[in-house]
Design a protein around this nucleic acid. Structure first.
Lengths: 214, 214
DNA sequence: ACATTTCGATACGATCGAGTTTCGCAACGA
DNA sequence: TCGTTGCGAAACTCGATCGTATCGAAATGT
């Protein structure tokens, strides 16, 4: 009755097939990656593509949203690894990863859903925040914090805004780039340098920081 | 047979009701604003809400996408008006408008669709680019260009990247802000100052621009 | 061997929505 | 008055999908 390794109760009968479970989730992800919104996704189509009976799906998830939540959570886009060089180098590396992911079909559709079904599927959104957004945010935050500690970045920097500017700029390009050509290869570098350097002309007399005062 | 004002042919019979047309479009917009994706939107529901027969819809649009395209095109979110003050002031004003719109239910759902149905409904996306994206882009571009001409902004600025950073940062907040509270009231100002000033510490010896060299 | 549970397949009733047709009435020009 | 066209309402056919039930076979523990 007891599983020797885990100590949990082992129910009698034929065990559930992990292969089927994987096939179902893969099928769901594939269909999302092909552009289905959650609304268009049908259990029947998932079952057919996974080569699985509908029963096998309903035995595991009671509705579509639960399935999609699990499917998307199983997707774990890589968290950018930083080399620990200069802050500028690491920020470029970080944005380059975002850019590469933005061109990946699966990540792209995943992000589409995260952006648009925001209000309709709160569970899903929370999962997205936890597995994708927050880890990256922390990587970037600690990177910027390191820059401050080292004196490479200004100590009075608005970290939240800086993170939004860097990630948002890249997101803006990957979503709304005019023309269907690829994004420029040096985009990560250009974004990084623009935001690190700032837009103000160098010799306005005062250092830029003074402008902060109201 | 000829319409006196326009010179066009006036067909016989009862003319089409402009009121019905407006009611249909309003109903469609309402339902989109309530969170329906295009997939969930049904012609029957639109007809019912508009108090109109389905025939009246099919007589005008041959399918759902055409109707939605027209409906969304009829929506004309205001293009930010700039006061012509300092560049900093105008950028803040511009971003403040974006922020306000991000909290508006209709604009928000409109944007959701633009973000996610990107690939599935190309007509719709093109219309969105033309009526929303491009005009704003031009406002912001000319604003930054003016800053360069006046010497307030650096002459070697990467305008495309700067626009993406400003808009992207605000978009990032309006879409993915943690916590459900409202966005801070001074957000537009914080974004503007952070990006104008840049993130680099002031006294790294060299002016920031030198870092651009590879 | 036997009980139990899952498997894929298939069928089922129910619902929903698309798109078409029909109806009687309303609005227009001639 | 008459022909034409638009109107809303309703009925209709058709296909998709839902969620459930049932089947014989397969996989496990006892």
């Amino acid at each position: 009755m007891m599983n020797e390794q885990t100590g949990t109760v082992r129910s009698p009968g034929r065990p559930r097939s992990e292969k089927a479970e994987k096939a179902i989730i893969d099928a769901a992800i594939d269909m999302i990656a092909e552009g289905s919104g959650i609304g268009e996704l049908s259990i029947e189509a998932i079952a057919a593509r996974a080569g699985v009976g509908k029963t096998t799906i309903y035995r595991r998830w009671s509705n579509k949203e639960d399935l999609v939540v699990d499917a998307l959570a199983s997707l774990r886009p890589p968290i950018p690894e930083l080399a620990g060089g200069s802050v500028r180098e690491d920020v470029i590396r970080y944005l380059a990863v975002l850019q590469r992911e933005g061109n990946n079909r699966t990540t792209r559709c995943f992000m589409n859903i995260a952006l648009s079904e925001h209000d309709r599927y709160p569970h899903l959104m929370e999962r997205f925040r936890a597995t994708v957004l927050r880890p990256r945010r922390e990587v970037l935050r600690s990177l910027l914090q390191r820059g401050i500690d080292r004196g490479e970045l200004r100590a009075d920097m608005d970290i939240e805004v800086a993170m939004a500017a860097l990630s948002g700029a890249m997101m803006f390009f990957t979503k709304w780039h005019e023309g269907d050509g690829d994004l420029p290869a040096d985009l990560a570098q250009r974004i990084t340098d623009s935001i690190l350097t700032g837009l103000l002309a160098p010799n306005t007399g005062l250092g830029g920081a003074v402008l902060h005062g109201e």
